[in-house]
Nucleic acid binder design. Structure first.
Length: 767
DNA sequence: TGCCAATGTCATCCG
DNA sequence: CGCGGATGACATTGG
């Protein structure tokens, strides 16, 4: 039997969770223009047990959302609404202002290092370009990436799904006509969209907080194009504008090599986490001492998400993803002039001599990177590279060009010995001449951002959208101001309601509401000594406030003054006058018609047990029968000479009365349990949504970093020249980080070898 | 009159 | 073993 009960209880919980989940995903109330009651209403019932008489006009639902079916809690309501607004604010993809400022503060003091631009997301969102890799033009690819970003936003649910609202066919036709009339005025069709208008009106109604939520929606449609013209990118949700300049991508042609390296460092702050060993590098490189002091690493380059939050997945995984994505995409993004120089035929002949060189016979040219300058520097090379390069003695026949950054220590600490060649120059490049059109392989990160996940996020956002409508507050206040139909005592104020309910819900929030037991709901009673007022029903004032049985309206109470401070006297089994004496007396004296009315009224209010008690001439009120402790109850019984039938009835009354209270408590508990579960589900969904959003942000940051690294790598690589002043072919050579922080140029075959070795290691480690 | 939500009651379990 | 709380199931009530 116990297991059976447990089964049912768990079944109830599961059912509740299931319904909540359904209620989120199938947002009946909002998105389906439902004529159905809100979901909660479906399984909790439309009306309220305790507020029916108080809020019979309220329907207990505002905009389809139940505040509390049993007792309205304004504190909770407004708190929930405020929190909901905050959550909605979280919902928007935006870089908080403080974080943007942090980026600016941490920027490399040299203004030329504009790769450290503060805009975290959109403009650097070139991952799309990385993925398709077929568009040779950077600018085009960037715009495509922006589109991809927009789609991503939409996938994330940041954009309200289209809905038809309550449109009838006439409405649609009218809209069509109006639209055709206005279309030449430049009005977009969407302004006739009912949902759009509704959303806007909602936004307008949202004071304060609405600004952040709603404006973005408008700006998404209205300002998007304008923003693009202004070279500003507008966050689809927040409406924040970001400068569209992407110095990190295009303007870096003007960067010095030194700065680029610093950028590289800052872009990869993984430091000790870098798992790329220096195993093979020392044999290939000859360390050149660093010339500079402590490195200046603009950590601010990193997305604040990366630095301030716990990474959702480990860096190792990120590295692997980075490796794979770079391998698949290779140099495809690189279409700048500098890169193209790498592939022109002029350098080919010279480089071919190096191709045949065995990797075991490297020579160092000892070219310090800081001596070179990056960018479209092809014409500057003769002057840029010192005689060391041109010197045959130094160059020898080696294909190994050692590049030493001026802050090599920082480099080594951050990169270790990293086979960048494995990252940037996939093996396919060795066999393919067309470097600009890399293999169109799926982005390994794409799996993390697949549609399913984005759909999930979208649903989560929808779930978050489900909540208190801004209109609800005002409506609730109106309802409160209006005649609620019952105001029995002074404690019956919104404040006392909310406070008492708050205490109840706070206790239940800690999952301990059941510990209060059957009498747990009278603890916060204001008129504790109500029991002294004879005739009060057995259950507690807290309960009586919500009890439907106490449906006397104030006017009736007017001529029942003795009930004013009792309030719920429907279980009286005696006429009021007789109660003071505790003596059995004929009930209906009938001296006056008013008195008769009173008696009739009381008769109607009396429960069956009270009628029975009166019929059996039980000499004390049912309240005492029910609520007295056993000892006192027995004492009371002993005072009177009662027949067996009377005693039996009294025991029944006591049993039923207690059970009645127990049932009420039980129902309230059940309801609280369901509500708490519902709240928990909402909280969990909110958390999940938040985490998913953070994940997306991380992935976006990672993509930015990859892109930065890629472009910087290409910058660096493009500036390298062999002893003849010709650029190296990325087909044959690759840059690699050595353990000592230096950067070396090694033949591609060697780099591929190392890359494969590392891959194997990673696989082993995963196992 | 039927529906439905709220409430009451009974039976039962359980501490 | 009786008391009383808890609770599922059913009955009653009232809108």
């Amino acid at each position: 039997m116990l297991s059976l009960k447990k089964y049912f209880t768990e079944g109830l919980i599961q059912f509740t969770i299931l319904l909540s989940l359904i209620g989120v995903r199938v947002d009946v109330d909002t998105y389906l223009n439902s004529h159905l009651p809100p979901l909660r209403e479906i399984f909790l019932g439309q009306s309220s047990a305790y507020t029916q008489t108080q809020f019979h006009n309220l329907r207990n639902t505002l905009d389809g959302y139940v505040i509390h079916p049993k007792s309205v809690d304004l504190d909770y309501y407004f708190t929930a609404r405020r929190l909901l607004n905050q959550v909605r604010a979280l919902d928007r993809f935006q870089v908080p202002t403080t974080e943007v400022n942090a980026w600016l503060v941490h920027r490399d003091p040299e203004g030329s290092v504009s790769g450290a631009q503060p805009s975290t997301g959109i403009v650097l969102e070139n991952g799309g370009g990385l993925q398709d890799g077929t568009v040779p033009d950077n600018v085009v690819r960037e715009s495509g990436a922006e589109q991809g970003f927009g789609e991503e936003l939409e996938d994330l649910g940041a954009v309200a799904p289209p809905m038809n609202g309550d449109l009838t066919k006439e409405d649609i036709d009218l809209i069509d006509i109006l639209w055709r009339q206005d279309i030449d005025l430049g009005a977009g069709r969407e302004i006739f969209d009912y949902s759009h208008r509704q959303k806007e009106s909602d936004v307008d109604k949202e004071a304060g907080s609405g600004q952040e939520c709603g404006d973005g929606w408008r700006s998404r449609r209205g300002e998007e194009d304008v923003a693009a013209d202004r070279a500003l990118l507008v966050d689809g949700e927040t409406g924040e504008s970001f400068p569209a300049q992407v110095p990190g991508v295009e303007d870096q042609t003007a960067l010095s090599l030194e700065e680029c390296l610093r950028l590289l460092e800052a872009t990869f702050p993984f430091g000790e986490n870098s798992e790329f060993p220096a195993a093979d590098a020392p044999s290939l490189t000859e360390a050149v001492p660093s010339e500079s002091g402590p490195s200046v690493v603009p950590n601010g380059l990193l997305s604040p998400l990366l630095t301030e939050t716990e990474l959702p997945f480990d860096l190792e995984q990120q590295w692997q993803d980075l490796m794979s994505i770079m391998e698949t995409q290779g140099m495809e993004v690189n279409s700048t002039a500098a890169t193209e120089n790498l592939y022109n035929s002029t350098g080919g002949d010279i480089l071919t001599t190096n191709y045949s060189l065995p990797p075991s016979t490297p020579i160092n040219q000892n070219v310090s990177l800081h001596q070179a300058s990056l960018g479209s520097c092809a014409q500057d090379f003769p002057s840029l590279f010192s005689s060391e390069i041109e010197s045959p003695s130094l160059a020898g026949s080696s294909a190994l060009l050692q590049l030493v950054p001026d802050n090599s220590t920082g480099f080594s600490s951050t990169f270790g010995s990293t086979n960048l060649s494995g990252i940037f120059f996939p093996s396919q490049l060795n066999s393919t001449v067309n470097d600009t059109s890399g293999p169109d392989l799926p982005d390994p990160l794409g799996g993390l951002l697949d549609e399913a996940m984005l759909d999930e996020i979208s649903l989560m956002d929808l779930a978050i959208e489900e909540g208190f409508n801004p209109v609800q507050a005002s409506r609730l206040e109106e309802e409160f101001d209006s005649d609620s139909g019952l105001s029995l005592d002074s404690s019956h104020s919104p404040a006392s309601l909310s406070s008492s309910e708050a205490s109840s819900s706070s206790s239940s929030a800690s999952s301990s509401f059941s510990e209060e037991g059957a009498v747990g709901y009278n603890s916060d009673s204001e008129n504790v000594d109500f029991e002294e007022t004879e005739g009060a029903v057995g259950y507690q004032p807290e309960y009586s406030k919500f009890c439907r049985m106490s449906y006397q309206n104030p006017s009736q109470l007017h001529y029942l003054p003795y009930l004013e401070h009792v309030g719920h006297n429907h279980t009286y089994n005696m006429a009021p006058r007789t109660l003071e004496t505790d003596e059995p007396e004929p009930v209906s004296v009938g001296r006056k018609s008013a008195k008769e009315k009173q008696a009739d009224f009381l008769d109607k209010q009396m429960s069956r047990d009270e009628h029975r008690a009166r019929a059996m001439k039980i000499p004390f009120p049912n309240e005492k029968i029910i609520n007295l402790p056993v000892e006192e109850f027995n004492e009371l019984l002993s005072k009177y000479q009662l027949s067996e039938a009377q005693l039996s009835l009294i025991r029944d009354i006591r049993r039923r009365g207690k059970n009645k209270m127990a049932a009420q408590n039980c129902r309230k508990r059940k309801l609280d349990t369901i509500l708490n579960l519902e709240r928990d589900v909402e909280d969990l969904q909110r958390d999940k949504s938040k985490l998913l959003r953070e994940k997306v942000e991380f992935l976006r940051s990672l993509r930015q970093m990859k892109q930065k690294v890629q472009s910087l790598y290409q910058e660096v690589f493009g500036c390298l020249r062999d002893e003849n002043g010709q650029p190296y072919s990325p087909n044959q050579y690759a840059l690699q980080y050595a353990s000592n922080g230096s950067m070396i140029l090694i033949p591609r075959s060697l780099a591929d070898q190392q890359g494969r070795r590392q891959e194997r290691k990673q696989k082993d480690r995963r196992k």
